[in-house]
């Protein structure tokens, strides 16, 4: 149980650090990185909630959500980067 609590605490810490950074920084790239740190925190909490001790099989439902969530987060980040690049080009012109 202490393992799951530790991982949940780490996930919450990551989420809150990311949220603070997301709100306090103006540049888009920093906001994007902050958003990804928040996402990693959420994934960590999900994995901790799925933990059933060293013997028990973990809950597969949160694992499946995290698995697809990681891929979706990567592609959403790529879309945000592409839009950010276009924005920068438009501002330079």
């Amino acid at each position: 149980m202490i393992t799951a609590l530790l991982y949940t605490a780490a996930g919450l810490l990551l989420f809150c650090l990311g949220l603070w950074s997301f709100l306090m920084h103006r540049p888009l790239l920093r906001k994007l990185i902050a958003l990804n740190v928040m996402g990693s925190g959420v994934f960590l909490v999900f994995v901790a909630l799925a933990y059933r001790g060293p013997e028990g099989a973990p809950d597969p439902v949160p694992h499946a959500l995290v698995l697809t969530g990681i891929v979706v987060a990567v592609s959403a980040t790529a879309l945000a980067l592409a839009l950010g690049r276009r924005l920068e080009e438009a501002e330079r012109d």
Binding site: L5, T8, L13, L49, D59
Partner: peptide
Amino acid sequence: AAGVLWWVFSLALLEGPGERLA
């Protein structure tokens, strides 16, 4: 917000798995 979240999640974890989909 971090305090509230920690309170909620630690309660959920200490209560045990309960009714889940597993």
